[in-house]
């Protein structure tokens, strides 16, 4: 651990500092959006969005290298595809109830496949594992500013529309009956989810981003009685998972993304087990 703290202050390790800043600041969006994803039970939709992001990254690479539009970075493709996926998936889940899971499952795989095809079509060699599993070495100052921007957006929306989003997550149909544009708010939530996913793909990668979105919120849910409490706790848990994950991966020379996820997973299982045992004891004694 001391080794990690020393490395953090080492002037040669600018990448590590930026990674820590991004991991810390992104926890704000992740905790808040993760709470919505867990309570609205749309982690499956978020999973589909994250895989569609890979399609966008592939398309971005193709456009940049093959078509020759050099300013078009893969990240722009990722943002566009994420927003498109969020809107399509939102509309599908609102209007095609019976076949919802089939359509979303298809989008999940097709998004991924499109990304791989684009990578094939693009000349040269690209290490796609950094997108799939995350790589903190890739994080730049530009990412940091994007995370700050996203945090401001997510915090502003979730404070301003707190009551409406609470109602939409708890009972969308009822909110709609009361004259709230519940479908629009639902899609807004999915769009914010997709932007959060895009920015966090850098840290943990496409495959594992869902775990970092849902696990801190799921752990927080065990201790919360109000939605905002769950958000605050989820942010804190997400920060702790990111810090310990980065520190451990640095000192043990492991990949950072998987280390973060393993810590989050173990914590979740431990918390669930303890709360079960605690409830048993409480029931027996009462």
């Amino acid at each position: 651990m001391i080794e990690f703290v020393n490395a953090f202050f080492d002037p040669d390790n600018a990448f590590l500092r930026i990674a820590i800043y991004v991991a810390t600041l992104s926890s704000i969006s992740f905790g808040i959006i993760g709470t919505y994803v867990v309570t609205r039970r749309i982690s499956y939709l978020a999973g589909a969005i994250s895989h569609c992001v890979f399609g966008g990254i592939g398309a971005g690479l193709y456009i940049q290298k093959e078509v020759g539009i050099s300013w078009f970075e893969p990240m722009y493709g990722a943002v566009i595809s994420a927003i498109m996926a969020a809107i399509i998936i939102g509309l599908v889940s609102l209007y095609a109830r019976q076949r919802e899971d089939t359509v979303i499952g298809a989008l999940w795989a097709v998004g991924m496949a499109a990304g791989l095809i684009f990578v094939d079509l693009t000349p040269g060699y690209f290490d796609i594992t950094s997108y799939l599993f995350g790589d903190i070495l890739l994080i730049s100052m530009k990412d940091l500013w994007m995370v700050v921007f996203l945090d401001v957006l997510v915090v502003a929306v979730s404070i301003y529309f707190y009551n409406i989003l609470l109602a939409v997550c708890f009972d969308q149909e009822f909110a709609g009956l009361r004259g709230v544009y519940s479908g629009a708010f639902y899609i807004l939530l999915l769009c914010l989810t997709s932007l959060t996913i895009v920015l966090l793909v850098r840290v943990v990668g496409i495959v594992m981003v869902i775990a970092l979105l849902t696990l801190p919120a799921a752990v927080a849910g065990q201790f919360s009685r109000r939605l905002w409490q769950m958000m605050v706790l989820a942010v804190i848990f997400c920060m702790i998972f990111n810090w310990t994950g980065l520190a451990l991966s640095y000192s043990l020379n492991l990949s950072s993304g998987p280390t973060i996820i393993i810590i989050a997973g173990i914590t979740y299982i431990a918390v669930i087990s303890f709360s079960r045992i605690f409830h048993r004891i409480k029931q027996k004694s009462s």
């Binding site: 301003y160 009551n163 409406i164 609470l166 708890f170 009361r178 004259g179 709230v180 919360s224 939605l227």
Partner: peptide
């Protein structure tokens, strides 16, 4: 309904007023 949803009784009942509010306040 999801019985684990972190919400209080008052918050649920207030949802009945949503149609009469501006921005849900």
């Amino acid at each position: 309904f999801d019985v684990q949803f972190p919400v209080t009784v008052m918050e649920i009942v207030l949802m009945g007023r949503l149609g009469y509010t501006l921005g849900g306040r």
